[in-house]
Design a protein around this nucleic acid. Structure first.
Lengths: 177, 177
DNA sequence: TGGATATTTCTTTATTTACTGAAATTACAG
DNA sequence: CTGTAATTTCAGTAAATAAAGAAATATCCA
């Protein structure tokens, strides 16, 4: 399957950015490809289109499945797995935030909890203790808030965001006067 | 400079997480060290404490400076640079979000703009065009909103967050009844 | 059950990224 | 200036990560 110029640039760029987003190039390319694809694709089709090893596609799909960014679907009369991703940016965003929280925040939350429970903590200066406590509290507040937000419907979320923006404007204007 | 048990675990963990957060181990370790440190440290001190090469510290500090997470300060009668980071989690959070936006979002925003301006776009299906437009719009909304939020004082931000959470609860309760 | 298709696992190779240590540069004191 | 301390740059090495290809496993159908 040859890609149109626009699709190709999109896929290649997504792949380049993948590294910065915490996934490898192939993973990001596959996701981009499915995102623009009109129908679910087989691993074989993905392999051909992207020109990478079949095993690479297999592993990358596994990773995308673990992020829940990609789903397996079946086509009647075809025993092969077909893969698709949501076309809803909000949906994708939620899944990415959720995945990142699991990978980038949870382990730290646990270590901080451990440190604060540790008997060694007594030996630390009050300042150090305070800093670690504040860090933990901050993480706790942020994750709770983000959980709340992510549970909203896109439309509601939009309203909340607009409200937030309005408040921020208000506050800024007050500050000036 | 030997580290206390708690500090050491904190620094080591921060270093491990660094990779997931988009910086390398040394960069993250240095930041953790400065975060818990009672005073600004010289590159030499950091080198000794972490047991890495001096040049590594130099490059890592440069990266932390580029994120604006670390500042150079001077001590009277000492010609060496001393380095410190903010102890304010909110402040740090803002800087990290800002840095990530620059590195993880801006390039994509530009490519999408380019694609939408491209003459090749005409050849694409309406669906593909729509998808790219939606993606761009989404990025635009999110960055604008995050800019707004990050400009707020921590206290105001807290209020907005609480408000957001309240609204979300409200909406969810309404949905049930 | 046998055989073909589909998929995954695993070992090896390639690529990328991080880090070291030496050399070069800069900044400053005498 | 000259010499020394501080810092950076850079070339080479080590470590980590990604990807390829072969081998193994699973799935389905005749």
């Amino acid at each position: 399957m040859a890609l149109s110029p626009v699709t190709q640039r999109f896929v290649l760029h997504w792949g380049e950015m993948g590294t910065r987003w915490g996934v490898n190039r192939t993973v990001a390319q596959i996701h981009a490809l499915l995102y623009l694809s009109k129908r679910a694709l087989t691993a074989e089709e993905i392999t051909d289109t992207l020109g990478v090893a079949r095993s690479n596609v297999s592993n990358s799909l596994k990773e995308l499945l673990s992020w829940r960014l990609v789903k397996v679907v079946h086509i009647l009369g075809d025993r092969r797995d077909h893969f698709e991703t949501s076309k809803d940016v909000w949906e994708l965003f939620k899944l990415i935030v959720e995945g990142r929280k699991q990978r980038e925040i949870e382990p730290t939350r646990e270590v901080l909890k451990d440190l604060l429970d540790s008997p060694d903590l007594k030996q630390e200066s009050a300042e150090t203790r305070k800093r670690i406590e504040e860090t933990q509290q901050f993480i706790s507040i942020m994750t709770h808030w983000s959980d709340e937000m992510l549970r909203l419907e896109p439309e509601t979320l939009m309203k909340v965001m607009k409200l937030g923006a309005r408040i921020s404007n208000l506050v800024r204007r007050e500050g000036k006067s």
